[in-house]
């Protein structure tokens, strides 16, 4: 083994630009999370009453769907990197899991609206709809990215040494998951 082979260069997966974008996105959400916490501090009863109307089961379902989707993306990346078949199958499974998230979320919204709660009801619902819808927008954008990765992978664009675009898309998808892991306890549990 050569000395050069011993040197392990630490590098970010994907493009550097996607990491700047991810940092910007995380910062925007961080601001919203902090604003939520400060507003909850001012109106604890209002937030407790609002949270009591939410379904923790639906929140858990959303979490499991996104975690599973992220796991499928990891498995897809491993397949594609190894040059093995099955990458697009895992990407399709990731999209189906994301679809389950969207279905659960839309059911939640329908339930809340049917009970007469909307954005203007109070500060809790303003944050609930605002934060979760903003996050859902990122999920939808991420699903479009996954479709693009599937299409390009189908054309044989990705392989070991040419994974930059795939890794960038996957990193964006995992960021969407990471954001939900903070959002879920904040809005549904605490």
């Amino acid at each position: 083994m050569t000395a050069q082979a011993d040197i392990q260069v630490k590098q970010l997966p994907g493009d550097f630009a996607i990491w700047l974008f991810i940092l910007a996105e995380l910062s925007v959400f961080a601001l919203f999370f902090i604003l939520y916490a400060i507003t909850r501090l001012r109106f604890p009863e209002m937030f407790a009453e609002g949270q009591a109307q939410l379904s923790v089961l639906a929140g858990v379902g959303n979490t499991l769907a996104l975690l599973t989707s992220s796991w499928f993306v990891v498995r897809a990346q491993q397949k594609v990197h190894a040059g093995r078949a099955g990458g697009n199958v895992f990407l399709l499974l990731a999209l189906m899991s994301a679809g389950a998230y969207l279905w659960i979320k839309s059911t939640e919204y329908q339930h809340s609206v049917a009970l007469g709660f909307d954005l203007s009801t109070n500060d809790f619902y303003f944050f609930y709809y605002g934060l979760t819808a903003f996050h859902m927008f990122h999920v939808i954008l991420g699903m479009l990215v996954l479709v693009l990765l599937m299409w390009q992978n189908g054309r044989g664009k990705y392989r070991s040494g040419r994974m930059n675009e795939f890794e960038s898309g996957a990193s964006y998808w995992h960021m969407v998951d990471l954001l939900w892991l903070v959002l879920f306890p904040l809005v549904y549990l605490l």
Binding site: Q8, K10, Q11, L12, P13, S70, W71, V73, V74, E167, S171, H174, M175, D177, L178, L181, V182
Partner: peptide, 15 residues
């Protein structure tokens, strides 16, 4: 979040 960052995002080998 640690698990997602290190093992799903793959940052355990990042700068």
């Amino acid at each position: 979040a640690f698990c997602v960052v290190d093992y799903f995002m793959g940052l355990r080998k990042a700068p």
